[in-house]
Amino acid sequence: MSAAIETYRLSKVYGRTRALDDVDLRVEEGSVFGFLGPNGAGKTTMLRLLTGLARPTSGSARILGQDVAAVGNSVRTEMGFLPDVPGFYDWMTGEEFLRFAAGLFGLEGGELHKRLGLLLGLAGLEGVRTQIGGYSRGMKQRLGVAQALINAPRLLLLDEPTGALDPLGRKDVLDMIASLRGRTTVFFSTHILGDVERVCDTVAVLNAGHIVAQGPIDELRSRYGQQKVVLEVTGGAEGLRADLEAAPWATRVASGSNGTLEVTITDLAEARLQIPALVAARHLGLSRLEAGEMGLEEVFVELVGEKAQ
């Protein structure tokens, strides 16, 4: 499979701040790729480098097989981009802006008419004659998504696309992203884990300018899922919880649903041996002991630590 995006030791330095530090990233063509990270991790910087809006301090990036440093109109023709805070001409209407954007791609005639209708519908802006200056933030965000799709791009780059949307608008955008799977490579940055879990097949986690994890979302979950066990005991679990918290191989103990305990561990083999012993020492019955699966949120918190809070 070919790569839609490929970066090699990509770095960006602003004064004394290293916004991105030796980032190696590969996004396969056709995937829906979630670029996760807490605020200030470097997600927007990464997108600015990928779109050619900023130049890297060192390293290189390739988009659809072409070096971004030499990126020209040929690549931009196949790309759609939505910035985190899209800027529009306030004196235009939404339809006028879409027509203008289409004009930059040389679109006209029946094809333009068809796409305009489709995208205005997607953005919920059909029949809206108000100038963009009078739009709410959510309307602007939806228009931003629509303009990014005007050229039916091969690669869609979205910076926090659902940040300003209400739950319904968010659902529509996520459904739209999911519907593009296989036809368009979607690369979107976000700090909303639910969005990533819902539509992405691959994910990279960025923290303080470094990629701390990268891979298919299921693989990432199972990689970290092996480090969690769920147990259920008969009787009071409070004393057992204190014992588990004191164990050197347990990093976190949380109460789950139905009186279960979820234990994040560093050594699964040791935990399997010790947990029954601790349960027996408390004269409790062990109803269930199994390897749990970590949610993406837990993986994220584990990877980026306190900064994500």
């Binding site: 050619g52 809006l53 109109n73 931009r76 910035p83 899209p86 800027g87 930059l104 303009q147």
Partner: peptide, 17 residues
């Protein structure tokens, strides 16, 4: 003015040099 308002970023990522 266009750089500050963000419109330049939107149009310059389209086929406009």
């Amino acid at each position: 003015g266009e750089v500050r308002s963000g419109t330049a970023a939107l149009v310059l990522t389209k086929p406009l040099s």
